[in-house]
Design a protein around this nucleic acid. Structure first.
Lengths: 154, 154
DNA sequence: TCTAACGTTGACGTTAACGTCATTATGATG
DNA sequence: CATCATAATGACGTTAACGTCAACGTTAGA
């Protein structure tokens, strides 16, 4: 059981942000002590770390993260795969909807990866030019040093 | 030569956004007609597309994109690799600084890619569970259909 | 040349994602 | 049990990234 300040230290978020994420439903509300103090578990911390990852890495808005986390929660089994619907027809419908959403998200991720890789290549090319420039100048300096030494020796 | 509305259509940005990007220095100010109308070139459009890519794919803030674009511009040769500095010492210093920044950015990109791939794997696992669920229900429905047919035949 | 459609420049509005008080309650500690 | 660091709540403030509206100038076509 952690208090909010420990969670803040663990995750790097501020206390305000943690409460805010709870407020907008981005994280499950933790249990409270008798007096009302929030008591977090390890699961809350992990949840937050996934949120942070999605926020920073994917640049998702917090709303988008909510959708994403819906699936992630279901995946980790914290929530049932699909709610208790009796009619197989409705179940199928729901599952197919989820399948479609997931496919779309996967495609989006793939596109992001390929775009990032393209940028990475550009940066690498540029870095190569920079390192080549460094080598060139260093060589020139060596040569002028050599000349100075030569001059001394003559 | 394009007018702002065409650029907007090409890039998917709004006119307001295009002017805003110019205002904050995120894109080079285009030439103006005698009357003051902005006249964009193909280069401007390409520039904007790179900005969009960095914004959407990397989730960079516009400020971060400015730094990134600084290097990208240098890379495409639109700006000199490094300004006309005469002293090789200062040149070296500048180049090494760029090298450091580039290395850092490359590491950041690599981390992003690996995190995205991790998320992708999770989503794929989940999708597999969903498709399995779909298959299971479809099979059940087939079986009950078969029973009905059997009942008819008896 | 006249006009409708488009462009420009302010200037204020908006939303997301928090930051920053102030006030009041809680809880571990000597 | 007194006290002092923490926690909670509420409310207002802030910043980035545009949206929107008004007032006015520009341009291309009949």
């Amino acid at each position: 059981m952690f208090k909010i300040d420990e969670v803040a230290r663990e995750t790097g978020l501020t206390k305000r942000t943690i409460r805010y994420y709870e407020e907008i439903g981005l994280m499950p509300a933790p249990e409270r002590s008798e007096g009302g103090t929030r008591q977090y578990t390890q699961a809350h911390i992990e949840h937050l770390q996934r949120v942070i990852s999605a926020r920073d890495v994917l640049g998702f808005s917090l709303q988008e993260i909510q959708e994403y986390m819906g699936y992630a929660q279901a995946l980790t089994g914290q929530r049932e795969l699909y709610p208790q619907i009796r009619e197989p027809e409705r179940q199928l419908e729901k599952l197919r909807e989820m399948d479609g959403t997931l496919e779309a998200q996967l495609r989006a991720l793939e596109e992001k990866v390929s775009k990032i890789l393209a940028m990475k290549q550009e940066l690498e090319q540029f870095r190569d030019r920079v390192t080549a420039g460094i080598a060139r100048i260093e060589k020139q300096e060596q040569q002028s040093e050599a000349k100075i030494t030569e001059g001394k020796n003559s």
